[in-house]
Amino acid sequence: MVRFKNRWLLVELIPVGEQQGNPTRLEAKQIWAALRESIQKYFGDVGWGSVSHSLTVKYFSPTTSICIIRVARDHHRVARGGVTLLDSIEGIRIVPYVIDISGTIKHAQLSAIEHNRKVIAQYRARAQTSASYQDSYDDYLEASTNEIQALRD
């Protein structure tokens, strides 16, 4: 039996302009559609044909604007190119930032959880709250960690 080898892209979609600081109202299927358009625009039908069977947005958090994208190992450069060339999704201007590329979902999960903790710490620093302060971010961190850990290949 042959195993399909994938790459997992951890991407932060940083909102620009009036959406900055507010949770985005995007969904995984909108991100997938924008990726499809970007890949078709910049890499043509051949580029889209190479990644279309394996490209999947497995996770998206509107609070921290991170998503986990799965793509076949042989064509992950096309997917990454499509991600970095995105400038807007559904009219929301964004700047994509590829945080990590990993070979297993486990490493993508660990990177996502670590990144979520850093972003929440930045939110708390802006609000000037102490680390021991209980707020909705604690609930979010627990819920997002459980959701990320529940992802399966």
Rank of each mutant, 00 (worst) to 15 (best):
S61F: 01
S52E: 14
V71G: 04
G47Q: 03
A34W: 09
S65H: 15
R124Y: 02
V16R: 14
F60K: 03
L55R: 00
E18K: 13
T24Y: 01
I99Q: 07
Q128M: 12
W48T: 07
L110S: 15
G17S: 09
H76V: 06
L9P: 01
I14E: 06
Q20T: 13
Q20V: 12
I120L: 04
C67D: 11
C67P: 02
R36S: 12
Q30C: 04
Q109A: 03
A131T: 05
W48V: 10
Q134P: 05
A33N: 12
S136P: 01
P96M: 08
T63H: 05
Q40L: 15
E27C: 05
S61K: 06
V11K: 03
S38V: 13
T56F: 09
L26P: 02
V119H: 04
V11S: 02
S136N: 11
W8Y: 15
S102D: 07
L55I: 09
D139K: 05
D138M: 08
G91T: 13
Q109I: 01
H115I: 01
I99R: 13
D100Y: 04
F43S: 07
L35W: 08
I94T: 09
S61W: 00
S111K: 14
V71P: 11
G82I: 03
Q149G: 07
H75D: 10
D139M: 03
Q122N: 14
A127M: 15
G17T: 04
K5F: 04
A34P: 05
V119N: 01
S52T: 10
L151R: 01
E37I: 05
R77S: 07
W48H: 06
R73N: 12
K118C: 00
Y133Q: 10
I14L: 15
Y140W: 15
T84S: 09
A121M: 03
D139P: 00
A28S: 13
S111E: 11
T24M: 15
L86H: 09
Y140G: 03
V78N: 07
K5V: 10
D139W: 00
S50L: 13
K106G: 12
R73I: 02
D87R: 15
R80H: 05
I89W: 07
Q40G: 08
I105Y: 00
K41V: 12
R124D: 03
T63C: 02
Y140V: 02
I69R: 00
A131C: 01
V11G: 02
Y42S: 11
R70H: 03
D100I: 01
R126D: 08
K41R: 10
L10G: 06
Y137M: 04
A125K: 15
G47C: 06
I69A: 01
P23M: 10
I99L: 14
V46N: 10
W32D: 08
V78G: 08
H107K: 14
Q20G: 02
G17N: 08
G21F: 12
H76I: 02
H76T: 03
G81C: 06
L86V: 14
G47L: 05
I105V: 14
W32A: 13
Y97L: 11
Y123F: 15
P62A: 02
H107P: 00
A127P: 02
Y42K: 06
I68S: 01
L151Y: 04
E114C: 06
R36A: 13
